[in-house]
Amino acid sequence: MTAIVSIKNLHKHFGSFEALAGIDLNIKKGEVVCIVGPSGSGKSTLIRCINQLEAFDDSSKVKISGVDVRQDETARAEVGMVFQSFNLFPHITIRQNIVLAPMRVQQLSEQKANAIADELMRRVGIESQADKFPRQLSGGQQQRVAIARALAMGPQVMLFDEPTSALDPEMVGEVLDVMRDLAVSGVTMMVVTHEMGFARQVADRVIFMDAGKIVEAGAPDKIFDNPEHQRTRDFVNAVLQY
């Protein structure tokens, strides 16, 4: 099986602070990887490097389906991204949010783009909101729109940057349900999350990061129930206590 995402020796500095201190990671097609760890451990920075929202050190390499993201700008369009704060375009409707990139970047006809949008809106359960503006939707609905918008480009991998952290508790479930459905249907996913229950249920692999490094990676059962490293144990104990 070839790697969809291939990361080699990834270093990232913010000034003198080393946010990522040498990450090596391969994600296979259809794999669901959850990245957990304390705040400031570099989780978000890692996935932001994958689609070039952050620049990284020259010695590092990030490839999508074998294409270096720094050499080919189009590689970025193969990566879908869902943000913590949704980042929907507030001045256009839900449908326009979803069809904008397919029409502008992939040059799809309006008809084709609309067909894709209809299918995706059904899939995430917001088909009745098509002609509303983002501000008229709840947070959970907005995040589902954001997922549909990213999926509309037909990406090879979907990145989620703490997708439920900005939501009211009662809306977390509806977003996680959509993500679980995506995982089941074979979408390749990297999810930075604090939802340990979701990670245990859905992830093929859980990665624990601390201080810019991958401390430990493995099946959810291993990480949560039988971690090797003391730091992983401390983190798991702390988050599972309540």
Binding site: N51, Q52, L53, E73, T74, R76, A77, V79, G80, M81, F83, S85, N87, L88, F89, H91, L100, A101, R104, V105, R149, A150, M153
Partner: peptide
């Protein structure tokens, strides 16, 4: 976040400015 969403979707600089 609006600039980032545009970059993540692969929109060109021109479309980022004119459409968003």
């Amino acid at each position: 976040g609006q600039f980032e969403a545009c970059r993540a979707l692969g929109l060109s600089y021109r479309h980022t400015m004119t459409d968003v």
